[in-house]
Amino acid sequence: MLAAFDNLLMDDRPRMLAGLRRGLIEFLYFGFKNARSCLFVFSFMAIVLLMPRAGLFGIPRYDLLLLVALGIQFWMVYAKLETWDELKAVCLFHMVGFALEAFKVSGSIQSWSYPDFAYTKLFGVPLFAGFMYASVGSYIVQAWRMFDLRIRHHPPYWMAATIALLIYANFFTHHYIGDYRWYLAACALGLYSRTVVIYRPLDRDRQMPLMLGFVLIGFFIWLAENIGTFWGMWRYPNQLGAWSIVHISKWSSWSLLVIMTFTIVASLKHIKSKIHIAEA
């Protein structure tokens, strides 16, 4: 059924639509395609919200969440809702996210913590945690296909890779040499100032600034992070006594992380042939 739904959403034959009716239908398709691209995100978040804190059948909830996340991923590949190449991109981002998590929860940093017991904890991080980062990669991978994304005026690829590496490094180094996220954000803004993403919600191409897409995705991740901390999946130090909203500065962190994710996905999907490299 989902495969048939995908075919329906991706049917870009010309429609005889105009005015308000076209705008409304394109808006609905835009929403449906985004929701479909969030298949893994929605499935995983639903399990997170429904899973009892004590776990089930004597199995801790962190361990069950790992099993469920693996099950969802392999089901998506089996049902041809995700290709093996797309799964590789998701797995790579899982490893990148897990490395960051292990550093952030370490004894000398303790930016946040996972308070519950689990058999599948490594360096204080439950293995399911990497899938929260992989969810971002999964969304971008799926959206690329659903919207037939094309990028125009992409900066030279080595520059994009460099800024992505610096963004990732800053998540580690800011504990020792200062936080340079706003300098990196300014560099990214200059780098992607002319870059636009071309997407197809229905049968016609539309476009938007790529940086706006990064910021919007970062905002929705920040909202999801508030849900996760509210349900006690992890806690920031200021939330140990009582829950409070995640600081708005995390929005900027997530937006920068989306830039890094985008670069990883773009590289692994071998889509350079669809990218227009800006001339010097």
Rank of each mutant, 00 (worst) to 15 (best):
L2I: 08
L2H: 15
A3P: 13
F5N: 01
D6L: 07
N7V: 06
N7A: 15
M10C: 13
M10D: 05
D11G: 06
R15W: 07
R15A: 10
R15H: 13
L20E: 07
L20I: 06
L24N: 01
L24R: 12
E26D: 10
E26M: 09
L28P: 05
L28C: 11
F30H: 10
G31V: 14
G31K: 04
G31W: 03
R36K: 12
R36M: 11
S37Y: 00
F40K: 03
V41R: 01
F42Y: 09
M45A: 10
I47A: 15
V48G: 02
L49T: 02
L49I: 12
M51Y: 07
P52R: 08
P52L: 08
G55E: 13
F57C: 11
G58I: 14
R61M: 13
Y62P: 06
L64N: 11
L66K: 01
L67R: 08
V68M: 14
G71T: 07
Q73A: 14
F74P: 01
L81S: 07
T83Y: 03
W84I: 10
K88V: 14
C91T: 11
L92S: 06
G97Y: 04
A99F: 12
A99P: 00
G107V: 01
G107K: 11
S108L: 09
S108K: 09
Q110T: 06
S111E: 14
P115Q: 06
P115H: 08
A118K: 02
T120A: 10
G124A: 12
V125F: 06
L127A: 00
F128M: 10
A129Y: 00
G130R: 02
M132V: 11
Y133K: 06
Y133C: 07
V136G: 14
Y139D: 05
I140C: 04
I140P: 09
V141C: 15
M146I: 07
F147C: 06
R152H: 11
H153C: 11
H153Y: 15
Y157I: 13
W158I: 09
M159W: 11
T162L: 12
T162Y: 13
L165E: 09
L165T: 03
L166A: 10
Y168A: 07
A169K: 02
A169R: 01
N170Y: 09
N170F: 13
T173Y: 08
H174N: 08
Y180C: 09
Y183D: 10
Y183L: 13
A185Y: 12
A186M: 07
L189N: 05
L191D: 07
R194L: 03
T195N: 10
Y199I: 14
L202N: 08
D203Y: 15
R204S: 15
R206A: 10
Q207K: 14
V215R: 00
I217K: 05
G218T: 08
F220I: 02
F220H: 12
E225K: 07
N226Y: 01
G228W: 05
M233P: 00
W234H: 03
P237A: 01
P237D: 01
L240C: 04
G241H: 11
G241Y: 02
S244F: 00
V246R: 04
K250C: 04
S252A: 12
S253I: 01
S255R: 04
V258C: 08
M260A: 15
M260I: 03
F262P: 04
I264W: 15
A266N: 11
A266P: 04
A266V: 08
L268T: 08
K269T: 14
K269I: 10
I271Q: 12
K272G: 15
I275W: 09
E279L: 06
E279N: 04
